[in-house]
């Protein structure tokens, strides 16, 4: 008996070593392609290392000097502001429209037809290559492009509106594209959340004679809070990584007067000019901000689990 148990145990152990074996590919690749680069990025942030013309300066150890430069030369603040402005301009309509659509799609009383068609269409822009979509917007909204031509043919405009010379024109285009690319995705996430709400609650509200507006504000929205927070923070993390759209739309220049220059475009410029010191410091800052935001998600979804 005893022997048998012992054998079983050792067999379990020999099976369980396969757990580690199956983890090898993931961790080997993670260490080489993510962890080592992360460490070397942090390491780089403490060195003076850039090119000025043909002269290579550094690498010399300068401690926190890069971080000081980053925070005092004012560029970081401007680009953070740009990124956040464009994110907010896209996110506010996105969350409003998504909440509205999700509550319509999941409302049994409304009985909308062709919902799967609408879902398919609103999710479509999310899969479009962001760079090609931005290039498309650039050509469509160009001074002599189709949008201006259409608006002039309809008599709305007398002369072409120069979208790319106007600060708010270009920012609005970036925000519009972000909105278009993400509201379908958010709608589907919120809908999944709404489906998870106990239908008995809605029935009880109906029996009590609550209007659909009351149901939305008093039942759906409060119960959706964890998912809303999740959507908001993941969207903010995504917003901080905003790059493809403004990069292609403005050809990497963030024009006019750098009003559409985002944080990652700033990082990209450092990587291209091989200013590894400042680039490293900027990466570390972005890493820390993302880590804090992710921690909030972790906490929220953890509490959510406990509540259930």
């Amino acid at each position: 008996m005893k022997q048998k148990a012992g054998r079983g145990n050792s067999k379990a152990v020999s099976y369980n070593k396969w757990g580690y074996i199956f983890l090898i590919p993931f961790f080997a690749v993670f260490i080489v392609f993510q962890f080592v680069p992360l460490v070397s990025t942090v390491y780089n942030s403490f060195f003076e290392n850039y090119r000025s013309g043909l002269i290579q300066v550094g690498p010399n150890f300068i401690g926190l000097e890069n971080y000081k430069t980053l925070f005092t030369n004012g560029e970081l603040l401007t680009y953070t502001k740009n990124t956040l402005i464009m994110w907010v301009m896209g996110f506010i309509p996105q969350i409003i429209v998504s909440l509205l659509l999700a509550s319509w799609f999941s409302d049994q009383r409304l009985r909308l037809k062709a919902t799967s068609f609408f879902k398919t269409v609103i999710y479509l822009p999310n899969l479009i290559m962001a760079s090609a979509f931005a290039m498309l917007f650039y050509t469509l909204f160009a001074d002599g492009g189709p949008i201006n031509l259409i608006l002039m043919q309809l008599g709305i405009l007398q002369e072409p509106f120069k979208f790319f010379s106007s600060i708010w024109g270009s920012r609005s285009l970036v925000a519009l594209m972000n909105f278009l690319m993400w509201f379908g995705n958010t709608t589907i996430l919120l809908m999944a959340g709404m489906m998870g709400i106990d239908p008995a609650l809605f029935e009880a509200a109906e029996v009590d004679g609550a209007t659909s507006t009351q149901v939305f504000w008093k039942i759906t929205l409060p119960l959706l809070k964890p998912i809303l927070l999740y959507v908001m923070i993941t969207s903010l993390i995504g917003g901080l990584q905003m790059f493809d759209v403004p990069q292609i739309l403005t050809n990497g220049k963030g024009e006019p007067v750098r009003s559409t220059m985002t944080l990652i475009m700033y990082l990209n410029n450092h990587l291209y000019s091989k200013n590894y010191g400042l680039g490293g410091a900027l990466s570390v800052c972005l890493f820390i901000i993302t880590a804090i935001l992710s921690l909030i998600i972790f906490k929220v979804s953890g509490n959510d689990k406990k509540a259930r």
């Binding site: 993510q34 080592v36 972005l286």
Partner: peptide, 27 residues
């Protein structure tokens, strides 16, 4: 190490590729 590894993988889920790009390109 099952539990800690699982938590660890979830924790690295949010690291954007952009922040390690510098080290990645150098490597």
């Amino acid at each position: 190490l099952k539990k800690p590894i699982f938590t660890f993988i979830l924790a690295i889920m949010m690291i954007p590729t952009q922040v390690t790009a510098l080290g990645f390109v150098q490597l």
